[in-house]
Amino acid sequence: MPLMTEADRLRFRYAARTDVGLVRPHNEDSGFAGPYLLLVADGVGGAAAGEIASASTAFALSSAAIVHDHPDLTGFLAEVIEVAHRQLRDDAELHPERRGMSTTLTAIMSDGETCAMAHVGDSRAYLLRDGFLTQLSHDHTLVQRLIDTGELTEEEALSYPYRSVVLQAVDDRQPPVPDLCELELMVGDRLLICSDGLSDLVDDQQIADLLYIHDLDDAAKALIAAAVDRGGRDNITCVIGEVETGPLIRRHGHFVGACGPDNLIDPTPVRLSSAPVRMGA
């Protein structure tokens, strides 16, 4: 594979949308979309501050990605997820009413040359390539484990009473064990990261059809509308990225959902001691 020039570094065109849905009183999802990072964090905990867990985790990763370089993308993602866990743990000790808060996290990141994914929980990452949709992430749920072991069929899983039980999360108790992998992406690939407010209600074929809409923002709006039309029983967040190449640009992006100043445990950007500060970001 030829070496990349400064003019053809991997990055994303992106769009992000979120909706509270028709049932939940407020939005506990957080999303971030930028030219080098796409992520969704779906907070769990209700009164135990799921929105604080999701916002703080999303901010920890996005701020570290903006400020730092790292020689190993998967190592970087693992380190920031550990930092987010420690923030939640320390905050729960100070605020006992928040004990039990947790969040999923699914993120795809590029350093301009390679791409990597980190995944904890049941938010999903999909790849649309040449009209075919592939699920990149593997749900960390009880129902998925039972499917994997042959104890449930896909059809039986649709009505299984414990579909919402998540086996892995970024929380205030145990350090998470994220799935980490490098991704072989191509120019023109479309990526979707979404909360289960979409994937629980909209099937893969319709996700593929709507993700194929030319304008990324229109695609995100259509995906959310499809989930709302099917009952909107949870918060719905969609972050879309299309792989392109170009010179390195500013790494800032934008947040959607719960990720505002009032929900951050620590508004100070995360700086990892093992990673040198990126120059010119």
Rank of each mutant, 00 (worst) to 15 (best):
A78C: 10
G197N: 01
T134H: 12
G45K: 00
E155N: 07
E182T: 13
H95F: 13
V202K: 00
L39E: 01
H254C: 08
I207K: 04
V239D: 00
V120A: 08
A225E: 09
H68V: 02
M1V: 08
A58Y: 02
T153I: 07
P25E: 14
V166F: 03
L142M: 13
A118F: 06
L185N: 11
Y212V: 03
A15P: 00
S30N: 06
H214G: 03
V202A: 09
D234R: 00
F32C: 03
S56D: 04
H26V: 12
D72K: 05
H140P: 04
E79K: 15
H95M: 12
A227Q: 02
L210S: 01
R233V: 04
T106C: 14
C194Y: 02
H70C: 14
P25R: 11
R129G: 11
E154A: 14
C259T: 12
G241Q: 00
A227I: 03
R250C: 14
I52R: 00
L198T: 07
T237L: 04
V83G: 11
G50H: 03
Y162V: 06
Y14S: 00
G253T: 01
A64T: 02
E155Y: 10
A48Q: 05
G257P: 02
D196V: 06
S54V: 07
R278A: 12
V165D: 05
R9E: 09
S159K: 09
G246T: 07
R251T: 13
H254A: 11
S137N: 07
A258M: 09
P176I: 06
E93T: 13
L201G: 09
S102L: 08
L37T: 03
D19L: 08
G197T: 01
D42E: 04
F12M: 08
D171S: 15
